[in-house]
Simulated scan of single mutants.
Amino acid sequence: MSDRFLTPFLALAAALTLATAAPAQDTGTPDDARLIHPGMLTVGTSDPVYPPWMMNDSPESGEGFENALVYALAEEMGFQRDQVQWVRLTFEQIIAPGDKPFDFAINQVSVTPARAEVAGFSQVYYQSDKAVIALPGSPVEGAASFADLRGARWGAAIGTTDLAYLESVLGATDVAVYDDQVGVFLAMQAGQIDATVAAVPTALFATAVQIPEASIVAILPPDAHDEGHGLLFEQGNALIPWVDAALTRLIEAGTVQELVNTWLVADPSLPIITE
């Protein structure tokens, strides 16, 4: 073949090689083609959401620990505030295996070995102790050990680490299971259960607003198999290193701790039960 015919083929081959070898110019920017919707950061959370994690059932407000964290993270990644869009799902839909309609989700999702088998996670951004919530006169009042707690009638929301904690850590039997936390509180008010557990920030809000006749009667240590809360991704999502690097910078800068201090304030005088 003459040089006149060979040259165009060589030029085309070189162009294809360059296109394959060179990374996309928009990788790691808001126009990253790996995003669910390039130009937008799509974030999943539950419906409804609760304080102090997110205030007034409004993720878009940025008022609350987790949505404030998302907007700080989005800015660190190069997104404008109006380039963040929220997708509302049930907690079960968020943690279920399979395709996700979001880039990542934030909803107090605890990182556990079982969940890590079907989903991807960022590093942990927060870990909370558990709080025991009960009404006056509950048999868990004055408890000093796990043994004192086990005989109570417990309830928790399906699919949560609260339920796993009661069964696997506390060793409670016949835990009543409800669709959501509101259902758990209604059951407590109806006298169907004696107590429940929740992350300390959730419990503080619940006993102040949702079920003010109840109180936190004890603090329990975290589950050793619960590494803390992380951002949840579809398994194998290529965005994880980019998002995780931005989260690392926020942690190192003290931004995440500032948000913890602003929104997740615990009472240091609460009694602690360790075993």
Score class of each variant (00 low, 15 high):
128 S>P: 03
150 R>G: 05
209 V>L: 07
233 F>D: 03
185 F>W: 15
259 L>A: 13
34 R>S: 09
212 P>M: 15
252 E>T: 13
245 A>V: 12
164 A>T: 11
66 E>I: 03
143 A>L: 09
117 E>V: 11
96 A>I: 09
192 Q>R: 15
256 V>I: 15
131 A>F: 10
69 L>D: 03
166 L>C: 11
206 A>T: 13
235 Q>F: 04
30 P>Q: 10
171 G>N: 07
106 I>V: 13
191 G>L: 09
275 E>Y: 07
84 V>G: 00
1 M>Q: 09
203 A>F: 04
224 A>H: 07
58 S>F: 04
133 I>K: 11
238 A>N: 08
192 Q>N: 13
213 E>A: 15
251 I>F: 08
203 A>G: 07
214 A>L: 08
216 I>W: 01
97 P>T: 08
250 L>G: 05
90 T>Y: 06
41 L>A: 10
104 F>C: 10
227 E>H: 05
81 R>D: 07
53 W>M: 09
88 R>H: 12
198 A>I: 05
104 F>I: 04
119 A>S: 15
216 I>M: 11
89 L>W: 05
186 L>V: 14
53 W>Q: 12
24 A>R: 09
50 Y>N: 12
274 T>D: 13
180 D>V: 04
12 L>T: 06
174 D>H: 10
100 K>R: 09
169 V>H: 04
261 N>Q: 12
95 I>G: 04
137 G>C: 07
242 W>I: 11
32 D>A: 03
149 L>A: 09
8 P>Q: 03
167 E>W: 02
48 P>Q: 12
